[in-house]
Computed example of a mutant assay.
Amino acid sequence: MTQGVQVAGLYVHDQDEALQFYVEKLGFRVHTDARNGDYRWLTVQHPGQPEFQLGLFRPQAPTVDDATAQELLKAVAKGAMPPLVLVVDDCRAAYETMRGRGVEFTQEPIARYGSIDASFRDPSGNGWKLIQAR
């Protein structure tokens, strides 16, 4: 029987920098931080969603070769990956809190599509939409 998605991953340039951003600025917590040689399995969780993990991964062997890893990191840095969505109760309040923690937004909160949303990027370039729950 299928139980659902447990982990979704992002490519990041620097796992320590990503960990600091997701924990200190977004309020996530560490779920798993395990190493096997050069490979590091690093996942975080949103405190309101403990059944789901967000993986903060470096593209590297054995999943991709070095050239592909560099191309993936370039694409992430350009913001070419699909955006992720973080749903909050109050977009404007979350925006102010996150800005106070040093999150750099690419779009201030705006009312549209029947809700309020804002946009930011993580240090690697992964795009996020901050959306107010309807």
Rank of each mutant, 00 (worst) to 15 (best):
Y22T: 01
Y22A: 01
Y22D: 01
E24K: 01
E24F: 02
L26T: 04
L26V: 04
F28L: 13
F28G: 05
R29I: 08
H31E: 12
N36R: 08
N36P: 00
G37E: 05
Y39G: 10
W41D: 02
W41Q: 08
W41Y: 14
G48C: 04
G48V: 04
P50N: 02
P50L: 07
F52I: 09
Q53I: 10
L54Y: 09
G55L: 09
G55T: 11
G55K: 11
L56Q: 00
R58Y: 08
Q60D: 14
A61I: 03
P62C: 05
V64E: 00
D65P: 05
D65T: 04
A67I: 00
A69S: 00
L72H: 09
L72D: 02
K74Q: 15
A75C: 07
A75F: 09
V76W: 07
V76M: 04
A77V: 00
K78A: 14
K78Q: 14
K78P: 09
K78G: 13
G79Q: 12
G79P: 06
A80F: 06
M81Q: 14
P82G: 04
P83F: 12
V85Y: 15
L86V: 12
V87C: 14
V87N: 13
V88R: 08
V88F: 10
V88E: 07
D90F: 08
D90G: 01
C91M: 09
R92S: 12
R92W: 11
R92K: 15
